[in-house]
Nucleic acid binder design. Structure first.
Lengths: 344, 344
DNA sequence: CCTCCTCGTGGAATCGATTACACGGAGGAT
DNA sequence: ATCCTCCGTGTAATCGATTCCACGAGGAGG
């Protein structure tokens, strides 16, 4: 592969001049510029990003460590992150932690070794020493979706409290009294926050929330299934199951189906995170929708601000309730197919 | 951030010795080794992968350019690719082409600039000059899922012909005669192959396939919707719609639903690519399942073989028909919930 | 005509690693 | 005692860029 030296030789100038042309530095004669450009063209030369990074100490690359690529929520997040990053001239390297702290650490380490310019993380746990060290060492970082309390890092996330309150009120209005939740890992902020919001909302409605109605999941489908089976075996099973993410809702669906029960007649179901398939499940699932794309874009903007020396800003956007039929009657018709990919 | 020089100074040895310890080169005294290791620990030193790559001319990184991250099929593929690559000591950088050739080229270029050791591609189109150049220049490359005919690059893919034949036979057995297909872009191999397989299978069953029953989609949900609307407006609409990928099936579902029609009573639906949600849609969707994880793993193995100087092998695995209820009666019960994440 | 700037250019240092080569000392063979 | 091997180690070249600094030419101003 041709290097800058080859280009210099071909154009009959020094490597310094070639470099100047490539980085359009002002003081290059028109003559030299055209000769260099011709040589670049002739040799099919492309600058070596590795060498450039070594010298300039910047990679124009962002790392994104997400908890689970198979979760459509994170996939969408990843997509919007890459899109915005590209618009700002950065590449993104995605690491999939698969909800496993040690895998998360592996990716953080690898990304740091590659000297990425900044890190976007949706932490799987309460904070690995590695990540804390990285923050202390000054690595530009932004948390997205989930965060680690007590760490001075901007957070870009959705606030679901109001939407959870709306959901509980909606369920209450439908006559449901025994509501259960499949919680996410307490070590994640989204895991604990959603339970808390649910608990508060229940209290507001004057509904009891026995411990047996709080199932411990791990944001994966299997746990949703397991917890739901547990609920169904209770002497007094809940009337509604609220899954704290879409995958656990999928698991719950599996469990209900395996029992031969019907939704919403035998048991109702709602989920945190709205995904396109919820429109087409049997029945369509009531969910809390996050402004996922906007979160990803805002996170990138915050991180790039931090990298380029501007003060980064934390962002909190509201989530909203989307009522469908999985919790009982009185659901409005979906206004239009929710298939539009790029939403404003 | 500490460099190898700092470690050398701290340990009282030369950088060469530090490097030797780090790459466990044999000729280093036990004493020097412990002193270096202690220094590494004390300084929290991590080798700079950028510098190392520049010197050794290898990044231990693979590029993966897929057509659409939002497509669960590709997400799963990406996941298995990353998993296998990690097991072999490589990282993966994913580029999302979003079914747009120019975006695909952007990613290929960026990955090449970063001097990735090899490229895994599922081409969006019939072959950009850029990619052809890269192959000619000797970049290790492997096509996965889709490929470019006439290019000497190993291909790892699933063969759906038998499964499509099974599907058509199944539909025929159910009494359906008017079958339509939502095809993918003809520029992609999967796009044209699936139509061809369908056409052949129809011929085998002695069924006609009028042009009006071949709708042109682009593997995105919107096109599935649009094409399905077209089908429904025909004087004689098809009895079955077969979508060549899962997203177009989603779009078809939208269209059917918007019309207030019922599946399978008013119209039947089948899809290429099986995804977890198809179990829970209304009704569960008959689909052709690919051994996605195995494809990803085989592709990585082939690419790494090529990179490390072993002869790479093309791999073709069979896809299989999974019958559910979206095409009519006589569907067997799903044996067990299809929620298990890691399938053998 | 001399001095001073400005401009375009090239030489060379530098980033942080790896590695070929040289070198000194220890130990074995003669 | 001399020579030859190894072994452990350090010096320095190298990868491909960027960029500081110096230098020569040419124009402006005195």
């Amino acid at each position: 592969m041709a290097s800058i030296k080859d280009v210099a030789a071909e154009a009959g100038v020094s490597v310094a001049t070639v470099s100047r042309v490539l980085n359009d530095h002002p003081s290059v004669s028109a003559d030299a510029r055209t000769r260099v450009l011709a040589a670049v063209e002739a040799l099919g030369y492309r600058p070596n990003a590795v060498a450039r990074s070594l010298r300039t100490d910047q990679t124009r690359t962002l790392g994104l460590v997400i908890s689970d690529v198979l979760n459509p929520y994170f996939t969408e997040l990843a997509r919007s992150v890459e899109e915005e990053a590209r618009a700002l001239g950065y590449s993104v390297i995605i690491g999939n932690a698969d909800e496993r702290p040690e895998l998360q650490d592996h990716h953080v380490r690898t990304l740091l070794d590659r000297r990425i310019d900044g890190l976007l993380v949706s932490p799987t746990d309460g904070g690995s020493p590695l990540m804390l060290d990285a923050v202390r060492a000054g690595t530009p970082m932004v948390f997205v979706d989930r965060w680690i309390p007590g760490v001075d890092v901007p957070v870009v996330r959705a606030d679901g409290r109001a939407a959870v309150r709306d959901l509980v009120a909606h369920l209450h209005g439908l006559g449901h009294r025994r509501l259960a939740i499949i919680a996410g890992p307490a070590a994640t902020t989204t895991g604990s926050e959603r339970v808390e919001a649910f608990r508060d909302a229940m209290a507001e409605c004057g509904l009891p929330l026995p411990d047996a109605y709080i199932g411990q999941g791990d944001f994966q489908a299997d746990s949703g299934r397991r917890v739901t089976e547990g609920f169904l075996e209770l002497a007094e099973p809940p009337e509604v199951v609220f899954a704290a993410d879409n995958l656990m809702a999928l698991g719950a669906l599996d469990a209900v189906r395996a029992r031969g029960l019907r939704i919403p007649d035998d048991i109702a179901l709602a989920a945190f995170d709205d995904i396109r398939w919820f429109v087409h499940t049997d029945p369509p699932i009531t969910a809390i929708a996050q402004p996922t794309g906007e979160l990803g874009r805002a996170a990138v903007r915050a991180l790039v601000d931090r990298i380029e020396g501007r003060p980064p800003q934390s962002v909190t956007l509201p989530a909203r309730l989307v009522v469908r039929r999985s919790c009982g009657e009185s659901a409005p018709q979906e206004p239009s197919p929710a298939t539009n990919r790029r939403q404003p």
